[in-house]
């Protein structure tokens, strides 16, 4: 294992994620802008957002100062040394923090002390899956605190919002979460929703939806239909970009389901801001870049 090679390319993944908004996200923002009235606040916000993406890319600086919690999703071949991968990734995160691609964004929850390198108990976040191939699949999502704070988990039935244990109840939960969030998740963003699972897997799986591209529909027909319905419904709320009014409250909605315990019916809604920093790369056995995934 050529450590320097791996670290260099993991660093490159972080740099690119922080500074270079993915093409599918930028295209969705452009489409949203076309639907807003000229000279409206919504148009001003979306234009600023697009200018911001261009400036960050050109200057090689973070798209957003809140570089978030770094969530790494690894797909590794059988027998691969994941401990070494964690160590190399931590080293790349530490370097990316020194270079200003990642903000010092990690606090000790008890003492309040700030970690200089973002390397701490629970930071960054790692998820592993084993894959039947020789390459290592590394995907990174940088998720800011604003969007994380407006995430919501419902336990159905929910009398307060009249949500029953069916897809109509799920729809009510999602719309309620979008309404509660207003502009605080930095709208227009992307929703990741998990129906079912337990308290933990609900959130994990809802966030895994962010690995899907914009416009990529659920393969489950009923869920694909619900995704479309949510997007259509949210246009009518007039919350708009940054919650200042307008049509673009959401760029996309991703919904999936896990099995559940008979007594439990969770609907977990995670938000991702418009600064949807998600990149991925396939690395060869020596850590060389085979290809970019987004």
């Amino acid at each position: 294992m050529r450590k320097a090679h791996w670290e260099k390319n993991l660093f490159e993944l972080i740099r690119k994620t922080s500074t270079d908004l993915p093409a599918d996200v930028e295209a969705a923002i452009r489409r949203a802008l076309l639907k807003e009235k000229k000279n409206s606040r919504a148009a001003w916000v979306l234009t600023t957002i697009l200018e911001n993406a261009a400036i960050a890319r050109k200057n090689d600086t973070p798209i957003c100062q809140d570089t978030g919690v770094l969530q790494f999703h690894f797909g590794v071949p059988v027998g691969f040394d994941t401990n070494a991968l964690v160590a190399m990734t931590r080293s790349a995160v530490s370097r990316a923090t020194r270079y200003g691609y990642v903000r010092q964004n990690t606090l000790d929850s008890v003492s309040g002390a700030s970690y200089e390198t973002n390397i701490a108990h629970g930071s960054p976040v790692f998820h592993f899956q084993q894959k039947a191939r020789k390459t290592v699949d590394v995907r990174l999502v940088m998720k800011g605190g604003g969007s994380e704070n407006v995430g919501r988990q419902f336990s159905l039935p929910d009398a307060e919002i009249g949500a029953s244990r069916d897809l109509e109840g799920v729809r009510k939960c999602i719309l309620q979460a979008v309404w509660e969030a207003q502009g605080n998740g930095c709208a227009p963003g992307i929703l990741g929703v998990c129906i079912g699972g337990d308290r933990t897997t609900g959130y994990t799986h809802s966030k895994e939806q962010f690995l899907r591209k914009i416009g990529e529909k659920s393969p489950v027909k009923l869920l694909a239909k619900l995704e479309e319905r949510i997007i259509k419904d949210c246009r009518k709320l007039d919350i708009g970009p940054m919650g200042l009014g307008g049509r673009a409250t959401l760029l996309d909605a991703k919904i999936d389901a896990l099995s559940r315990h008979p007594a439990c019916y969770f609907v977990t809604v995670s938000f991702m801001c418009w600064a949807f920093r998600r990149r991925g790369v396939l690395l060869g056995p020596e850590g060389g870049i085979k290809r970019w995934l987004y």
Binding site: N52, Q65, M242, L244
Partner: peptide, 13 residues
Amino acid sequence: LQAVGGAAAHIAQ
């Protein structure tokens, strides 16, 4: 005053 959330590179300029 509301600034545009996430427009961090824009404002940094």
